[in-house]
Simulated assay, not measured.
Amino acid sequence: MTITLRRRSLLGATLTATLTAALAAPALAQGYPSRPVRLIVPYPPGGATDITARLLAQELSSSLGQPFAVENRGGGASVTGTQAIAAATPDGHALGVIDTAFVVNPGLLGSRLPYDTRRDFSFVSVLVRSPLVLVVPASAPWQDLAALVRDARAKPNELTFGSAGNGTAVHMAGEQFRLAADFSFLHVPYRGGGPMITDVLAGRVHMAFGTIPAMAEHVRAGRLRALAITGDTRASLLPEVPTMAEAGFPAVDAALLNALIGPAGLPEPVLAQLAAASRRAVTSPAMTARLTQLGFEPVGGTPAEAAALLLAQITQWDRVIRDGDIKVD
């Protein structure tokens, strides 16, 4: 009898605790946000990540009833701002919008990072992604990707590949392509995408990856030739350009991405509320139209999906960096 009563008592306590937690979660979500939210961007104003963050901030401010203010923390190849996200109080009132550098830096910088990318963050939602396009000068002899690969294999380290800088998404795309196609090139890193595009247009660099909106106008005007789009889906801005998968290199799937993250330990109800609000934001007609103009595809996934993708990306780029023996100064 005593054992039965004890079991009933334990069962009652367990049910009470479960019920209390279930009731507390919606209450916590309903009280969030209780004050303005900082949205940290680890770059100066004006770039693609900053634009995405500002569009998101406007939508979240409207839907969640508190101001979401973008705070630019540039410097250190995005590390300075990302560290500020990791150090924030985990109550949902300081978040961050990051890009591909977030998943590349662990392989590039390793123990020099002042945070653990896998453990020191809460992954809220992947907001958008954008494939990249491989371009060559209009004067180049290669009419398709196969011709470029044949020439590159025949002339090891003679062809030049331009990038917006060591460790950038376009650099990683080039390394991924080089490894998949089994050839070597001479990497020419620039301080940003502008100077890189200038030299590709002038024929001083043989090839480069770039964002589709930045390259589409030059391609349409006949100043550049687009050979392939990363991934397996053609781009609406350049529908005539085949994908890397169509060209025989499905592993070349590098893309720009933006994701919403926070410090580790964000409460589950807040995570769920932010993910749902972000999904509504990026799929709203106004924001979708603007993102499409920028070459982004809205995603708006769940926290579990964000964690799975970002952690897989860290592993993927770590392998490319290791196999390509990529170093940074």
Score class of each variant (00 low, 15 high):
257 L>M: 14
256 L>F: 15
147 A>M: 06
191 R>E: 12
310 L>P: 03
2 T>F: 13
136 V>F: 06
289 A>E: 14
88 A>G: 07
221 A>T: 10
129 R>E: 13
306 A>D: 07
10 L>Y: 13
224 L>H: 05
14 T>A: 14
97 V>S: 04
63 S>D: 11
113 L>T: 03
287 M>C: 05
136 V>N: 03
166 N>V: 13
3 I>D: 11
247 A>F: 07
157 N>D: 12
217 E>M: 09
23 L>R: 06
94 A>M: 08
209 F>C: 05
161 F>S: 01
189 P>V: 01
138 A>M: 04
158 E>Q: 15
164 A>V: 00
5 L>V: 12
194 G>M: 11
210 G>L: 02
131 P>N: 08
12 G>R: 14
323 D>T: 14
318 D>G: 15
140 A>K: 02
159 L>V: 02
326 I>Y: 03
199 D>Q: 12
43 Y>N: 15
103 V>I: 10
146 A>M: 05
12 G>K: 11
61 S>I: 04
145 L>R: 02
68 F>I: 08
49 T>I: 15
161 F>L: 04
23 L>M: 15
18 T>A: 15
312 A>N: 11
219 V>R: 01
146 A>L: 05
220 R>C: 01
128 V>G: 02
161 F>G: 00
127 L>C: 04
289 A>S: 15
228 A>N: 04
57 A>Q: 06
310 L>Y: 01
211 T>N: 13
41 V>F: 10
171 H>R: 01
294 L>A: 11
250 P>Y: 07
162 G>Q: 01
233 T>A: 15
32 Y>A: 09
17 A>G: 10
105 N>Q: 07
288 T>A: 15
255 A>W: 04
309 L>G: 00
21 A>N: 10
317 W>F: 15
92 G>C: 04
180 A>F: 01
112 R>P: 03
